[in-house]
Computed example of a mutant assay.
Amino acid sequence: MKYRRFGKTNFDVSEVSLGTWQLGSKWGDPFSEKDAQATLEEAFDQGVNFFDTADVYQDGESQRAIAKFLKGKEDKVFISTKIGRRMDPHVASGYTEKNITKYVEDCLTNLDVDALDNVLLHCPPTHVFYNPEPFFALDKLKKEGKIKNYGVSVEKIEEGMKALDYDISSVEIIYNMFRLRPAENFFKMAKEHDVGIIARVPLASGLLTGKYDLNTKFGQNDHRTTNRHGEEFDAVETFSGVDYATGVKAADELKQRLGAGDKLAAMALRYILMSDAVSTVIPGASKPEQIERNVIAADYPAFTHEQMGIVEDVYDKYIKDPVHYKW
């Protein structure tokens, strides 16, 4: 494993880390505490020291599983947790000091720690970024010692840029072979502010594994079945906002032209790490055997100029219009 400085936090985080949305459960399936602990321990054994979670993941089970795993490792790992999506309805007016404080205190309880390493507002409505109250509330919690750092998880480039007005340490943003726009201007701005970048949805909900075709069926409760057009939550999350059939075609062409074989997923993660603005990439895993599939990306050779051009060419051909202009 290789490590990178995580912005102004000065913590060196693993290039390939772990997103815990699926921890101990495939999408829509019951949570397994045993699988969760085994997955976390395997990740740690493979050099992963950054774990991304949220208070809504598995209704808090993700955080509570991490709390058990964390014992004795507090100074060796960095836990980033998101807050805000428990709000129902999820509206800008709900991002008050009172609510933010409550969410942070609940996370402290779930994770069983005295202070949170990093708190991210969890893809709040765009209007929140133009209201300083939630950020001032986070400043206050930082002064009180309840959080060490804070930042935002965003859907749109605009939101990430606006968040740089505040004392944030990190931005979590969708960046992958099917979402190249963040690298145009935003990454440069983040580096200038010494803000760490967490690349989320790195495999476009599995499209960039190259294993799916037009006949692939997902589970009845899987968001890849139920949220393709934003029926349940933001459309940008599922398949990175890419039309499924189009994504299958694009992934097939990438696999062929890059000569990826069955290693497209690892190559997709390595592509993200080609940007020195990215601190870490957070693919998910529901079982320990999936960890090695992710972490091998850190040891893959750098993309050649020709390979970088292939990714851009496929993006321009299949993805750019309309995805590039939406988010």
Score class of each variant (00 low, 15 high):
Glu184Ser: 03
Lys73His: 09
Thr238His: 01
Val77His: 03
Gly84Trp: 04
Leu40Thr: 04
Thr101Ala: 09
Lys76Cys: 07
Gly206Phe: 01
Gly241Cys: 06
Pro283Ala: 01
Gly230Ile: 12
Arg293Lys: 15
Leu273Ala: 09
Lys102Pro: 01
Glu237Ile: 13
Lys217Ala: 12
Gly7Leu: 04
Phe78Leu: 06
Glu105Tyr: 01
Ala163Pro: 00
Ile147Glu: 01
Val77Asp: 02
Gly219Cys: 01
Tyr271His: 06
Lys143Ala: 13
Tyr315Asn: 06
Gly7Ile: 00
Gly72Leu: 10
Leu111Arg: 05
Lys255Glu: 03
Gly160Ile: 10
Gln307His: 08
Val236Tyr: 11
Pro283Thr: 07
Ile157Cys: 03
Thr280His: 01
Thr9Pro: 05
Ala115Met: 09
Arg64Ser: 10
Ser80Arg: 00
Glu253Arg: 13
Asp222Lys: 06
Val195Arg: 00
Ile147Thr: 00
Asn185Val: 11
Val195Ile: 09
Lys71Asp: 04
His122Pro: 02
Ile198Cys: 09
Val242Ser: 08
Ala38Glu: 15
Glu306Leu: 05
Arg86Ala: 05
Asp52Gln: 08
Asp234Glu: 13
Leu18Met: 05
Val13Ile: 10
Gln256Glu: 15
Gln63Tyr: 02
Val152Asp: 12
Tyr57Trp: 05
Thr225Val: 05
Ser93Leu: 12
Glu312Trp: 06
Val278Asp: 04
Glu42Cys: 10
Tyr130Phe: 13
Asp35Gly: 02
Ala251Gln: 08
Ala266Thr: 02
Ala245Val: 02
Glu184Cys: 00
Thr81Gly: 07
Thr101Leu: 03
Tyr95Trp: 14
Ala67Met: 11
Ala67Thr: 08
Thr209Asn: 07
Thr225Arg: 09
Asp88Cys: 09
Thr304Trp: 06
Gly47Thr: 12
Ala260Trp: 05
Asp114Lys: 15
Ala277Ser: 13
Pro283Ser: 08
Cys123Lys: 09
Gly151Arg: 03
Gly145Asp: 06
Met274Gly: 14
Gln58Gly: 14
Glu232Met: 13
Tyr130Ala: 12
Lys255His: 05
Trp27Thr: 11
Lys191Gln: 15
Gly206Trp: 03
Glu292Gln: 14
Tyr318Met: 11
Val154Lys: 05
Glu144His: 07
Phe11Glu: 00
His122Glu: 07
Phe187Val: 11
His305Gln: 15
Lys34Gly: 05
Arg179Thr: 13
Ile168Ala: 03
Ser205Ala: 15
Val171Cys: 10
Arg4Leu: 04
Arg181His: 11
Pro288Val: 02
Ala190Glu: 02
